[in-house]
Nucleic acid binder design. Structure first.
Lengths: 214, 214
DNA sequence: AGGTAACCACACCGGTCGGTATACTCGCAG
DNA sequence: CTGCGAGTATACCGACCGGTGTGGTTACCT
């Protein structure tokens, strides 16, 4: 089975740029975007605001880069869990989510970012939509069915929200149970047990892989 | 059937206080909490920061009041849709949500607020959890079953997120379809088509039908 | 008459916001 | 040797942040 890749490649950065993006990612996720100033980011990265603006041009661009990085890391985590998971692929997504949320206690970075910048024309908005769209395509591919994949996507997002904002530690397990019911009912015979397939979709569909680099 | 009320009563406010809360609610929802300063709120309400702090003490308290108001308004909207909706109660929730999201284009105020203040000890956090917990109780009551209600809750939250952050206009409809499948499968015999009798799985466990009134 | 709650106008506080400017050092490729 | 990209250090900008203080004006209640 071929799973789609998230449509972001990793940026080529100078050492200081790398430290800045790493520091910004940690701070943005843990405290929120508007709650973190560029001064703090530069200081945490052990460099200066000057370097930050030389590399990234704008705080907004740094935010967009932060989200792209999150998308790539979540994909890596997810595909690692899916690898070797047999025909119950769709359900393994919920196991991957449970493990992910054990460390990422502030929930979905994209939903959180949208809460802060949604509707403002912020460059992060496109990244947010692209990630949601990608995740849906993954679930549709795993489910082998458009409607079932869309339903699983709803459960996946609902579980993330209720786990985090709702404080319901059983949310992911409930979602998995519900998903199992849907999957079992919809296509019980489509997936023969012994088959190891790997996801081969590695098309990077962006040619502009550099940074402002001015 | 008795549905639980949201555990917030409406505050008694002076005229200027009312204007402040109304202005703050609009601004917080549309632009985010941290993006809105107290100066702007006071100016929009046609009053001064002094009055704001005399009435509410803190911006954080104003934020909590804002969320309580949102919860009450959503409950009123939801119950109005449920009223007269026959035995297909659980599905009417998704119709109410669709209508709600047609006007509330920034999605769930509680999820958005949690993205900004989650994990900081902010007084809004308790309000957020209470609202999610209340909504779950409503869905469990409507479904007449704990597991089914929890599953519907997942679909409800997932639909809200995917509609808003994901930009999927079909999210609520998909959630409704999926919910219909779950409901139909779980209790097919309890609801004879031509009958206005209510499904009896909802145990009446509270006599407090009015407002919390505490 | 006196008290008081509500309100407004305005000034002020230290701190932080995103972003810019100047000037200097280092290593490396032509 | 020179030029340049990368980095550091530091000062600065106007605007805004949440929050406080002072003083004065209504209107209503005893």
């Amino acid at each position: 089975m071929v799973l789609p890749d998230v449509p972001f490649d990793d940026p080529v950065l100078t050492p200081a740029g790398e430290r800045l993006l790493r520091a910004a990612s940690e701070l943005f996720y843990r405290r929120g975007i508007r709650a973190v100033g560029v001064d703090l980011i530069a200081e945490t990265a052990g460099t200066t605001k000057k370097t930050l603006y030389d590399r990234f041009g704008t705080k907004d661009e740094l935010v967009a880069l932060y989200l792209r990085g999150r998308a790539r890391r979540w994909q890596a985590h997810l595909f690692a869990h899916l690898h070797g998971a047999g025909p119950e692929g769709p359900l393994a997504v919920f196991d991957a989510l449970a493990a992910w949320l054990r460390e990422q206690d502030r929930g979905c970075a994209f939903v959180n970012a949208h809460a802060e910048v949604g509707g403002t024309g912020h460059p992060a908005e496109a990244v947010i939509r692209a990630e949601k769209d990608w995740m849906r395509r993954v679930l549709v591919a795993l489910a082998g069915d458009e409607r079932l994949g869309a339903a699983l996507h709803l459960l996946y997002e609902g579980a993330t929200v209720l786990h985090t904002a709702g404080g319901r530690v059983d949310a992911v397990a409930t979602a998995r149970d519900t998903a199992a019911g849907l999957v079992g009912r919809s296509a019980p015979a489509l997936l023969p047990p012994p088959a190891q397939q790997q996801h081969e979709g590695a098309q990077q569909r962006e040619e502009h892989h550099g940074l402002p680099q001015r």
